[in-house]
Amino acid sequence: MTLNEYLEQIANKNIAIVGFGLEGKSTYNFLRSHFPDKHIAIFEIKEEVAKNFFEDKKEENITIYSGENYLDDGKEKYNYVFVAPGINYRKISPYFPNAEIVNQAKVFLDLFADRVIGVTGTKGKSTISTLLKLTINEYQDVELVGNIGIPAFDSINSDDGKRLYVFELSSHQLDQVTRSPHIALIVNLHEDHLEYHGTIEAYHNAKKNIYRYQTKNDYLLISNDENSKKILNENVISNLYTYGIKGTERGIFIEGEDIIFVDKGKREVIAKTNLERKILGDFNLENIARILCILKIIGINDLRKALNVIKEFPGLPHRLENVGTFNNITFFNDSISTIPESAMNAINAVKNVGTIIIGGYDKGVSY
Rank of each mutant, 00 (worst) to 15 (best):
E168R: 05
E168T: 12
L169G: 00
L169A: 07
S170E: 04
S170N: 06
S170C: 11
S171C: 04
H172E: 06
H172Q: 14
Q173P: 08
D175S: 09
D175L: 00
Q176W: 06
V177E: 08
V177Q: 05
V177R: 03
T178R: 09
R179E: 14
S180F: 03
S180Q: 07
P181C: 14
I183S: 01
A184N: 03
A184E: 02
L185R: 05
L185K: 05
L185H: 02
L185G: 03
L185Q: 05
L185I: 12
I186K: 04
I186L: 10
I186Q: 02
V187A: 04
V187M: 06
N188K: 03
N188M: 05
L189Q: 00
L189T: 00
H190R: 11
E191Q: 08
D192L: 07
H193V: 04
H193S: 04
L194W: 00
L194Q: 01
E195L: 07
Y196K: 06
G198R: 03
T199G: 04
T199D: 02
T199S: 02
T199P: 02
I200A: 14
I200D: 06
Y203R: 00
H204M: 15
H204N: 14
N205S: 15
N205M: 15
N205Y: 14
A206H: 08
K207P: 00
K208V: 08
K208W: 00
K208F: 06
K208G: 05
K208L: 09
N209P: 12
N209F: 04
I210A: 11
I210H: 06
Y211K: 07
R212M: 15
Y213T: 07
K216Q: 14
N217C: 11
N217D: 15
Y219Q: 14
Y219A: 13
Y219W: 13
L221M: 10
L221Q: 09
L221H: 08
I222A: 05
I222P: 01
I222V: 13
N224W: 03
N224C: 10
D225I: 06
D225V: 03
E226I: 15
N227Y: 09
N227G: 04
N227L: 11
S228Y: 04
S228P: 11
S228A: 11
K229N: 12
K230A: 15
I231K: 05
L232M: 13
E234D: 14
V236L: 09
I237G: 08
S238T: 10
S238V: 04
S238R: 02
N239R: 12
L240P: 13
T242C: 12
Y243A: 07
Y243C: 08
G244Q: 10
I245F: 01
I245T: 13
K246E: 15
K246Q: 15
G247K: 06
G247M: 03
T248I: 09
R250T: 13
R250Y: 12
G251T: 06
G251P: 07
G251M: 00
G251K: 01
G251Y: 02
G251R: 00
I252C: 07
F253Y: 15
F253L: 12
F253T: 08
I254Q: 07
E255S: 15
G256N: 10
G256S: 12
